[in-house]
Amino acid sequence: MSRKIFSRRLDKIFKILGISFMVFSLLVLLVLLIDVFLDGKSRLTWGFLTSFPSRKPQQAGILSAWVGSVWIMITTAIFALPLGIGAGIYLEEYARKNRLTKFIEINIANLAGVPSIIYGLLGLGLFVRYLNLDRSVLAGGLTLALLVLPIIILSTQQALRAIPFSIREASYAVGATKWQTVRHQLLPAALGNIMTGVILAMSRAIGETAPLITIGALTYIAFLPQSPIIFLKNFPFVRFSLKGMFDPFTVLPIQIFNWVSRPQKGFFTNAAAGIIVLLCLTLIMNISAILLRHHYQGKIRW
């Protein structure tokens, strides 16, 4: 009888332990957010977003950093989206279940576990040196595209797998080809889940620091890549140019890292303010991904 009471008590103790450990995790998250917010809120002004970095902490801003981050995100998306979604479609819909397919899938699972700094070394050797792209936006974007590809491929595969086979059979039955089935039936149905994966992949890319440092992205930069839209003299007319892709860049996390690693206290405040901006972007992306997934989970009933 006493053993039974003992084990019941143990059960209760474990329940309390479980709750307290989870509260601990949430508390850490909360403390982190509050700490950073209190440290950085005094520097969070309009001027902070529109100034270049400076040697004086009070005048330094994140203009080149966030513009660089936007450039890198767009470049990464241009390459990673079609390649990742395309590869996912192939593996799920076209590939025969043979050794080659299995090899490719194991390979993708392995790539998902390679440390990000190794991708930096790959980018340094392949894009910066071998392809001579130098420390450009293009080299950085390509490096991050390779880094997030496994995430996009895996989420595309999962999204397609969730679609019942009957949809495909119905499409074939009315005479559609394989690609027509993919293009008009499967992709629209899987879009919500694929977008969730894409947003998560991009939120990973916006926070990546190590691979971009490794390819040699600059830490102090006081100019912007050439704007993609150039206003001509006859005003409403514009010219588009992607020359900015070949310009050097810095990104938000690198700017934060640069400020954190300086001895002066003033720069710590700047780093905290930069982190608030970065966290806002990451949190918005993640929360919208969670909401999107929730929305699609409830909506589609096969």
Binding site: G207, E208, A210, I256, V260, I275, L278, T282
Partner: peptide, 10 residues
């Protein structure tokens, strides 16, 4: 999902 540079600061 929090970027690791933020954890470094922390």
């Amino acid at each position: 999902a929090i970027p690791t540079v933020v954890y470094g600061y922390f």
